[in-house]
Amino acid sequence: MSDSEVAVHNPALRHHFAEVEQQRNASSLGMWLFLVTEVMFFGGMFCAYLVYRTAHFGDFAAASSTLDLKLGTINTAVLILSSLTVVMAVWAAQTGKQKALVMYLLLTIVLGLAFLGVKGVEYAEKFEKHHVPGPTFHFAGAIPGHPDHPADPRHAEMFFSLYFVMTGMHAVHMIIGIGLFAFLAFKASRGAYTPAYFTPIENAGLYWHFVDIIWIYLFPLLYLIDRHK
C-alpha cells in the first residue's frame, strides 16, 4: 500500500478512499440517504394521520383544540432556536473555533432538553385529563363550530393515539440527537474536530435539522386543526 503516500497524509482519510473530497461526499450522501429512510419512516405515520384526519375531521378538530397551543408554540420556537445553535456549531467547526463549537453544542443540548421538558408537561396534562388512549380514556368535547354536536370519543382516542405516536417518535429522535451531541461535545472539547475534518458535526447537524423539520410539520398538523371556531 505505498501508492497512497504520494498525497499529503490526512489522518482522517480512511484507507479505502482515494481522496478526502471523495470521502466527504460519500459520508454526506450516506447521511442524506439515511434521512430519506427517516422521511419514509415518519411518512408511514403521516399517511395514517392523513387517512384518519380526512375521515374524522370534526372529531380530530375537537381533540386538537384541547392541546395547549401556547406550549406548542413555545416548543416550536425552542426547537427552531436549537436549529440555529446547531448550524452555528457547524460554522464554528468550519472556522476552527473550538470553544464556540463546544458552547453551541452544549446550548443545543440545553434547548433539546427544554423541548423535552415542555413535552413532558404536556404529556402529564394528558394523563390528568384522561386523554391517554387505553381503558381509562375519556373525552367529552364538542365539534368546533357545532357546540351541540359532541365529538365521537372513539375518534378522539384515535387522534390522541396518533398524537402520542408521532410526538413520541419525534421525542425518541430528539433523545438520540441529544445523546449524539453530548458525545460530540465531549470529543470536540478534546479537539477532535478541525476545519479539515468535522463530518460528524455536519452529519449530526443534518439529523437535528431533519428532526426540526418533522416538528415544523407536526405543529400545524396536530395543534392547529380548525382553531378559529
Partner: peptide
C-alpha cells in the same frame, strides 16, 4: 404501530375505534 397498539392499546388500526 402494531406493537404499540398491542401493548399500549393505542387505536391506529382498531376498527372498534373507527
Amino acid at each position: 404501530l402494531v406493537a404499540l397498539e398491542r401493548t399500549l392499546h393505542l387505536g391506529i388500526f382498531d376498527p372498534k375505534l373507527g
